[in-house]
Simulated assay, not measured.
Amino acid sequence: MTQKTIFVLNGPNLDHLGVREPEIYGRETLADVEAMCRAEADAAGFALRFHQTNAEHEMIGWLHEARVGAAGVVINPAAFSYAGYPILDAIKMVDSPVFEVHISNTHRREFEWRANSIITQVATGMITGFGVHGYVLAVRHIAHLRK
């Protein structure tokens, strides 16, 4: 792995982005998000690994791949935010910046539990409420940090 690879990792149900509650998450698809992130990474001279999973063990595997030598990790843990302790432990081992991204502002959502991500305690930073553009901001910031 080279210092020029940014991982963008997506958790459960994000494969339905664009059709799942578009009034909250918008109409852009995960393919749209990948294209935006790839354009940002390419422009800055970075490779991009983009993944989505509904399975905790797959997310952990990608975090293990990013553990040493990645430029950074952008993660939207989705529902893993609330009970993904194995994911939290895997993030602790990553030696590069890790940015937690949420499409909606989780602090303004209908249930208080949505604002209580366990991942936040180990993330370098959090971007929430910027829609899918939060991903692009995170990729851009990692590129800025690693130049």
Rank of each mutant, 00 (worst) to 15 (best):
A71P: 01
A55W: 10
H16I: 07
F7Q: 00
E34R: 09
T2R: 05
R146M: 09
I6M: 04
A115R: 09
G129C: 07
I118H: 02
N10A: 05
V19E: 07
T106P: 07
G129K: 06
T124L: 02
N54T: 01
G26Q: 04
V98C: 14
G26F: 02
E110L: 10
M93I: 11
T106R: 14
R67Q: 12
A47M: 11
L14W: 00
K147A: 12
H64E: 13
L48Q: 13
A35M: 10
M36F: 07
I24G: 02
A70V: 05
N10C: 08
H133L: 06
A47D: 15
E58M: 15
S117M: 03
G69S: 09
F80N: 07
V73P: 01
L30S: 01
G72N: 06
R140V: 00
I60A: 13
L14G: 01
A115E: 11
C37L: 07
D42Q: 15
L9P: 00
P12N: 06
F99M: 12
L63D: 08
S96A: 15
N76Y: 07
M59S: 00
V74Q: 10
A66H: 04
M1K: 10
E58S: 13
V74A: 09
Y85R: 10
D42L: 15
I103R: 05
Y82F: 12
G11A: 04
V68A: 12
A123G: 09
H141C: 03
T29Q: 02
R108W: 13
P77D: 09
F80T: 03
A44W: 10
P97Q: 09
H107M: 09
V98Y: 04
L14S: 00
R140T: 03
G131P: 01
H107Y: 15
V132C: 14
A83H: 15
G72Y: 00
Y85M: 09
V19N: 07
